[in-house]
């Protein structure tokens, strides 16, 4: 009795565990497996050798057959746990295999050889990370180029977005001027026009500007985000006006008021927009897919999609590159997790 009372004791006195609490924790436990499991499985799989990936049923951890260097042999030989005809079990290396019979040798004394049917032995396996999955694509494919393209697009586009969106938001929040209502209305009106709808004509515009296959074709069309203007404006409306008036008294120019006073005060909102912009740009797919047709201008997402078309059988590279692609976003998540969640919750946008 006492033990049961101890186990069900809660921090809040007088409140016993309700069955819904148990269901809730059960649901959360399943949730952790379902939400994190696939990503964890991807990471574990990405360290497996091609042979390890073909295994069915798959092993949980990346395992590889142990190979031993034997004196007198040029290459390392695979190690097997072998049951000899006399019932003795020994770890032997395979010298050669003819049909269903293998010639095995003792790794310590290679002159001692045995002929064994191949169903009388099992590979000796140990935990091994196939890091080649990560290093080889770097040499064989243009992975670094894709990575650079993605970083360039993300950084430049985010910088442009922050600058022009905050300028517009500043004009729409601090000033009264003819046409202001119309401008605000247009911003709200374009909030919900996705690139999907104007795919073809934006392609024409970009062609006319001679930007097809240039990274600027990815950067420029999405730079003026209505969401960003809206978010920044709502924040700037809360800033104290006295500060701006005081700066005007000190003969600060409007431009100086913008970047020396209003911008620093808007930092929290700018940071939210920066995170969004990084997320949007890093993950963008449909538009780059339409406008980037040369391999050297691919971003990571497009490169990855092209790989999965080409390398149907080379999952070991594909999985490793998928991990590389999600890594930067995962890092952002780890460091800014709480902040991102509240930011999205408050603004209701994605």
């Amino acid at each position: 009795m006492k033990i049961a009372a101890f186990l069900t004791r809660r921090r809040v006195a007088g409140r016993r565990i309700h069955w819904t609490d148990i269901v809730a924790y059960g649901y959360l436990a399943v949730g952790v497996v379902v939400m994190f499991g696939p990503v964890l499985w991807l990471v574990l799989s990405s360290f497996k050798t091609p042979a390890g990936l073909l295994e069915f049923p798959p092993s949980l951890l990346p395992m590889a057959q142990v190979e031993v260097t034997v004196p007198g042999q040029p290459q390392p030989l695979p190690l097997f746990r072998t049951t000899l005809p006399d019932g003795q079990v020994r770890d032997l290396v395979q010298l050669r295999r003819v049909g269903i019979v293998a010639q095995m040798a003792d790794p310590k004394d290679p002159t001692q050889t045995f002929r064994v049917p191949i169903d009388k032995r099992e590979p000796v396996r140990a935990f091994a990370m196939a890091t080649g999955n990560y290093t080889e694509p770097l040499a064989r494919f243009d992975f670094l180029r894709f990575l650079w393209n993605s970083i360039f697009v993300t950084v430049v586009a985010t910088a442009i977005t922050l600058l022009i969106n905050s300028m517009a938001a500043y004009a729409l929040s601090i000033y009264e001027f003819p046409g202001k209502g119309f401008a605000i209305l247009t911003v709200i009106g374009t909030l919900m026009i996705p690139i999907t709808i104007i795919l073809v004509p934006v392609y024409l515009v970009v062609t006319e500007l001679r930007l097809v296959n240039s990274l600027w074709a990815v950067i420029l069309p999405g730079a003026a985000t209505p969401t960003g203007v809206f978010l920044l404006r709502q924040y700037m409306l809360t800033l104290p006006r006295d500060l701006i008036e005081a700066a005007r008294m000190d003969k600060a120019s409007e431009w100086q008021i913008y970047w020396r006073i209003v911008m620093p005060l808007t930092m929290p909102a700018l940071a939210v927009l920066a995170i969004f912009s990084v997320m949007w740009r890093w993950n963008e797919f449909l538009w780059p897919l339409a406008v980037l047709t040369k391999t050297e201008s691919y971003t990571l997402q497009i490169g990855l999609n092209a790989f999965q078309g080409e390398l149907q059988t080379q999952w070991h590279y594909l999985l490793a590159m998928t991990v590389m692609t999600l890594l930067p976003i995962a890092l952002v998540f780890v460091f800014l997790q709480r902040f991102i969640a509240t930011g999205i919750g408050n603004t209701g946008m994605k």
Binding site: W282, N283, Q301, N305, I329, F333, I340
Partner: peptide, 8 residues
């Protein structure tokens, strides 16, 4: 967490 992952 999955919200941040790219569609690809």
């Amino acid at each position: 967490f999955p919200v941040l992952l790219s569609p690809v």
